[in-house]
Simulated assay, not measured.
Amino acid sequence: MTDLPMTEMLEKTVVSGTEAVAVLADVRRALLADQLVPYLGPLLLAIESEPPVPTAPEEVAAALHAKAPAPGRIRTNMWSVAQFIESRRHRKTLQAFMAEIFARPVQPTRLHRFLAGLKLGMMIDSWYDGALASALRDAGRTDFVEIQGVTRAGEFRDIWTKVYGPDGREVLPETAENATTVLYAPHGGVNPVGNFLVADSDYVEVLTEIDIQSPIPAVVKDRRSARGFLFVGCRFHDQMLRTYARQIMKRSSGPHYALIDAETLTKNERKFLEQQGIQAIDLPLGQAVEALID
């Protein structure tokens, strides 16, 4: 255990300038060698054009609030606003609202298309838009599956996820074992059928079991074991976001990196990066992505 004070330990999790450029070159080599799992967040969607969907939980909360006004104390919290709608209006109403909010197709960025061509063992999409799955289909990939987290509302089975083939049809879970690429969307996605984990109630059982890893698919546990993680376009300013990232990368081999603007980091985010051994590469997201691609 290091004897460095906490402030100094946190500073060492961030590299910038020429050091960041050098680390990014190592990240690119590791990515090309299938040694890193890309973990994509919603901020990535805005690096090339104005996205037609929300790119933050707070924006989803605002969109839901516009459809069904929520109390002031919760209206900026996506999970609480969604729970309010589900409780007052019905689960089907919440599902319909989310489908409307994410109805407009999102064009994959150059990074999405670059990753789709690498045939990586695993990729994570932590948002609902489905751009990464679209990039895989656009690339003509027929050797991938998408595993989506699903709500247990209305389910009478012990089920956490569903698996979909390249054509969007549901397939048997064991199909994932033989796929070249596993795309894991832990919070669900608008396509192909509109699976959304978004309300507090969706996460009650998940968070109860996630420490023992029950909600994490076996193939994800297997494929992460020899890889590190690369977080792109992600924020960790909410406990829910930190919990999911921590549990998905649990027992992975590392190293771990995040492309992130250090000036925007909250105290909790810095602490999370340090605790999880994630090195933050402090470069403008667009610049960092271009370096990864080129």
Rank of each mutant, 00 (worst) to 15 (best):
L4R: 13
P5W: 01
M6Y: 12
T7W: 12
T7Q: 12
T7I: 14
E8G: 05
M9E: 14
M9W: 04
E11V: 06
K12R: 15
V14K: 00
V14P: 09
T18D: 15
A20S: 10
A22P: 05
A22F: 07
V23T: 15
A25R: 14
Y39P: 02
L43T: 07
L44W: 05
E48T: 04
S49Y: 06
P52H: 09
V53D: 03
P54S: 05
P54I: 00
T55Q: 07
A56Q: 02
E59K: 05
A62G: 08
G72F: 06
R73V: 13
I74A: 02
R75H: 10
T76F: 07
N77F: 05
N77Y: 09
M78A: 04
M78T: 09
S80I: 01
V81W: 06
A82V: 00
A82I: 05
R88F: 11
R89W: 11
R89H: 14
R89Q: 13
F97R: 06
I101E: 00
F102Q: 08
P105N: 03
Q107D: 13
Q107Y: 04
T109Q: 06
L115M: 12
L115S: 00
A116P: 05
A116Q: 02
L120K: 05
M122T: 10
M123A: 11
M123S: 04
D125L: 09
S126E: 11
S126P: 04
W127I: 05
D129G: 01
A131K: 06
L132S: 10
A133P: 04
A133M: 07
S134A: 13
L136K: 00
R137I: 13
G140I: 12
T142A: 11
T142Q: 15
F144P: 03
E146I: 10
G149W: 01
V150G: 02
T151I: 02
R152K: 06
A153L: 06
D158L: 12
D167C: 12
R169E: 15
E170V: 13
E170H: 01
V171D: 08
V171Y: 07
P173T: 13
T181W: 05
T181P: 01
V182P: 03
L183S: 06
Y184K: 01
A185I: 02
G189W: 00
S201A: 11
I210W: 07
D211E: 15
S214P: 01
P215I: 11
A218W: 10
G228Q: 09
G228D: 03
L230K: 03
G233Q: 01
C234L: 11
C234M: 14
R235V: 10
F236H: 08
F236V: 01
D238N: 08
D238Y: 09
Q239L: 12
M240I: 12
R242H: 00
Y244V: 10
Y244Q: 03
A245L: 09
Q247R: 14
Q247C: 10
I248E: 11
K250C: 10
K250W: 12
S252D: 14
P255Y: 13
A262Q: 02
A262H: 08
A262C: 04
E263K: 12
N268D: 14
K271V: 12
F272E: 08
F272L: 11
F272I: 08
E274C: 14
Q276Y: 14
Q279S: 02
L283G: 06
P284M: 05
L285N: 08
L285A: 01
V289P: 06
L292K: 05
I293M: 04
I293F: 03
